[in-house]
């Protein structure tokens, strides 16, 4: 059994053509997911049960079911519903890209909201009390005290979640999207060379993962400059 390096050299550029789509999926889902996560987190910490419980239920459902199932529900399932077909959003749900971004965003929102909540809960209560004693309002304390510190605390876990999101973009290949994994699967079907193709693709993902980790570490260092004793 030989290792067909020529095939790798030929296929890698083809797979990398999918990287644009991979990144579009990643970035759009990350952004929408973060917005949704912020909303959910605020609902969770609001202290009002009619905000907190729906948020908790949402998070529970989306973290308790496989993301593949969520994608299928949106892509294959939504068209079954008349409500969707006749709505203004139909063009979004008819398109596999729209479905993928939608499902990935909803899923990311659930996971990231817990990460954000963890960050908020990790903020030192004593410091917040000092803010209270100085007369700062609840909102002021949240914006100037909680947010900067919670962001730094949440960053490592958030970085891991971005990497998970990257890996989840590969699932878009199951609904006909030709991002990197989609292209790879097509090539394998034609060439019967799973090792060469899938291993080289795995290496691409690993490199991307590594780059994301480096970026997150950079940001962590910048945000954490006040934690170092040397100036």
């Amino acid at each position: 059994m030989s290792f067909d390096t020529a095939l790798i050299v030929e296929s890698l550029p083809k797979m990398l053509m999918g990287i644009g789509l991979t990144f579009q999926l990643l970035i759009l889902s990350a952004v929408f997911g973060l917005i949704l996560a912020t909303l959910l987190m605020l609902m969770r910490i609001s202290g009002k049960w009619w905000l907190s419980w729906p948020a908790q239920a949402y998070i529970y459902v989306f973290r308790g079911t496989p993301i593949l199932v969520q994608i299928f529900i949106v892509y294959y399932g939504f068209p079954q519903l008349e409500m969707i077909r006749e709505s203004v959003l139909w063009p979004l749900f008819r398109d596999p890209f729209g479905c993928a971004v939608f499902a990935l965003s909803l899923n990311a929102g659930a996971y990231v909201s817990e990460i954000l909540r963890g960050g908020v809960l990790g903020v030192d209560r004593g410091m917040l009390e000092a803010g209270e004693a100085l007369g700062l309002s609840k909102t002021q304390r949240f914006v100037y005290l909680t947010t900067p510190i919670a962001t730094r605390l949440a960053l490592p876990a958030y970085g891991n979640d971005i990497i998970s999101l990257l890996k989840s973009t590969a699932l878009a290949s199951t609904i006909t999207l030709m991002e990197m994994t989609g292209i790879a699967r097509t090539i394998v079907a034609q060439t019967y060379a799973p090792y060469e193709i899938f291993i080289s693709l795995a290496i691409v993902y690993m490199v991307l993962t590594f780059l994301i980790q480096k970026l997150v570490a950079r940001i962590e260092r910048h945000l954490g400059r006040y934690t170092l004793k040397e100036g």
Partner: peptide, 18 residues
């Protein structure tokens, strides 16, 4: 308004670290 007029110093300083 009351808190503006009452200053407090804590045992663990509670400065804003960032």
């Amino acid at each position: 308004a009351v808190r503006r007029e009452v200053g407090m110093v804590f045992q663990s300083y509670n400065l804003f670290p960032h």
